[in-house]
Amino acid sequence: MESSLKVMDSIKWYFFGIILIAAVIEVIWANRKHIQVFNYNESLGNLGVFIGNQLARPLSLAYKYMVLGWIESFHFFDIPTNVFTVILTFFVTEFGYYWHHRLSHEVPLLWTLHHTHHSAMKMNLTTALRINWMGNFVSPLFYIPFVLVGFSSKIIITCLAIGLFFQYFLHTEAIKKLGFLEGVFFNTPSAHRVHHGSNKKYIDKNYGAILIVFDRIFGTYQPEEEKVVYGVTTGFYSNNPLKINFLPLIEYFKGNWKREKNRIKDIDSN
């Protein structure tokens, strides 16, 4: 596990470089096009959430390897590692991600964690950084069945990391609809803009990470057809990283968290 953590730690700096360059390009694009895709306070809040995740990252990553590595010792089958099984593991991980993501919208307690990501009112690359601090300790639990079957925990974690990196570039308005590629196989910025919409027709749609095929299979795919209204159904929530992460969970245990019209009805934090 220690060697895997070192490899992941060295790779992350290359990822950070690419992420930073992409963000700078998006800022330049928005300024030249005079498009208001950024809110200064919200972006600062997003960065605050991101910094918190990075501080907790060594612990959360070690936790993933520990939990899934321990479960791996009880596996039912010995699945060899080769090109075919790596590809199969990728699809299995995408399937697991789809259902984890979908349940994070449909189960009130899980939504208190995922709400962090959806409470952003703007769609830009900093929005991708708005991930709940506690969510990283819950997500590995959804992949336990696949590890028990015999799929490699290390490959699953690697696929999740690649998926997270891919999804970073979906959080933008700079890339428009991709024509015949929309809704076929891969997820796109257009499809993910829909996912972040609070429009009635966009709510609880397009859960895929890299792939969109499971949304097609399970009937949750929705193309981008009208201007997206970003954020949660109650509007502005908060730009305070602590409130963004913890207030929904606190309100849940107070009994102030309700589900209405096939959507979690959020509390009013104003």
Score class of each variant (00 low, 15 high):
83 V>D: 11
12 K>Q: 12
49 V>Y: 07
109 L>D: 01
232 V>I: 14
139 S>A: 13
53 N>H: 02
69 G>H: 03
36 Q>F: 03
107 V>W: 08
97 Y>E: 03
95 F>S: 05
152 S>T: 05
226 E>F: 06
95 F>Y: 13
243 K>W: 05
61 L>R: 09
233 T>K: 13
77 F>P: 01
204 D>H: 00
229 V>K: 15
49 V>S: 10
236 F>C: 05
9 D>G: 03
49 V>K: 05
67 V>N: 07
210 I>Y: 03
256 N>Q: 13
174 A>V: 08
206 N>L: 09
199 N>D: 13
115 H>C: 12
122 K>R: 12
11 I>E: 01
255 G>N: 12
59 L>R: 09
46 N>R: 06
264 I>G: 10
28 I>H: 01
221 Y>N: 01
192 H>W: 05
256 N>L: 05
20 L>K: 05
156 I>K: 04
239 N>C: 06
39 N>A: 03
156 I>N: 02
265 K>T: 15
167 Q>K: 11
237 Y>T: 15
244 I>S: 13
269 S>E: 14
242 L>T: 04
226 E>V: 07
24 V>H: 01
155 I>P: 10
63 Y>D: 08
257 W>M: 11
232 V>S: 07
262 N>H: 12
88 L>H: 00
101 H>L: 06
205 K>D: 13
78 D>Y: 07
13 W>V: 08
192 H>A: 05
267 I>V: 14
160 L>T: 10
113 L>Q: 00
80 P>E: 03
108 P>Q: 07
63 Y>W: 15
233 T>I: 04
156 I>F: 01
33 K>H: 14
201 K>D: 15
17 G>A: 06
207 Y>C: 02
244 I>P: 08
168 Y>A: 04
131 I>Q: 08
124 N>I: 05
80 P>C: 03
166 F>L: 00
261 K>G: 08
7 V>R: 10
56 A>N: 05
23 A>Q: 12
114 H>F: 00
89 T>G: 14
93 T>S: 14
35 I>H: 08
112 T>W: 11
76 F>V: 07
32 R>L: 11
72 E>D: 10
51 I>K: 06
105 H>M: 07
120 A>Y: 10
62 A>E: 05
21 I>F: 13
125 L>P: 01
77 F>D: 04
269 S>P: 10
119 S>R: 02
188 T>W: 15
141 L>K: 00
15 F>I: 08
136 N>M: 08
220 T>R: 06
169 F>M: 00
96 G>K: 02
140 P>V: 03
234 T>C: 07
116 T>F: 03
42 E>G: 14
263 R>C: 03
78 D>V: 10
113 L>G: 02
212 I>D: 10
269 S>Q: 11
188 T>K: 06
10 S>L: 12
28 I>K: 09
248 P>S: 00
159 C>D: 12
93 T>R: 06
135 G>A: 00
26 E>N: 01
231 G>T: 02
260 E>H: 10
61 L>D: 11
199 N>S: 06
53 N>E: 03
